[in-house]
Amino acid sequence: MGEKNVLVVRHLKKQIGAKQILKDVSFQAGLGELLAITGANGAGKTTLLRIIAGLSRKSGGEVIWNGGNIGYIAHQPMLYGSLSVQENLAFFAEMYGTMSQRRVQELLELVDLWLYRLEPAAVLSRGMQQRLAIARALMIAPALLLYDEPFTSLDADGRAVLRRVLAEYRPRTVQLVITHEPQHFGELGYREIRLKDGRVVEGGDRSA
């Protein structure tokens, strides 16, 4: 059993067919930490996040997380286009058993979408859909937040919303952000983990 609210990744490996996507990835992240996972395309960043989220099976090593719900914001917004903004949030909140109308309103206000709550998700711009995806991840009271290139497709206002979320949720969560542009974190301090060819080449934990 690992320590509560500490994410431990040890010697993680992932192989699909003959291709070894993750060769040996180890690091730790504790409560309040913001980790920027960087690296070239194909370095294994998204695979790493999907394994931590439980969406993909690992081939070796271990991921230890005992902290509670995991919020995952993927490259795609992962929304139901024919459902309204509010219905999208409510559906996932009910799935996790965290439904509260007041919370829905708070989160939609946080991501500046309250005025659009009755609009179908399909008619929103890509940036607005991404903000709704962020609200959906926050709806489940996450203790670990995983973001896959969240700044992509966000305009200046959207990036400001995301920075607000990163800052507001920092004290009570562990946050991992895949990004090619860590400069968007602005004044938020962060630790960088750089992946190359399925290995941590900078900022990892070699003793783990």
Binding site: R50, A53, A74
Partner: peptide, 16 residues
């Protein structure tokens, strides 16, 4: 197909 097209399958797998 609905989940596949919208990319919501991952969100649904996590929630389920």
């Amino acid at each position: 197909a609905k989940e596949k097209d919208s990319g919501a399958l991952d969100a649904l797998l996590l929630a389920a």
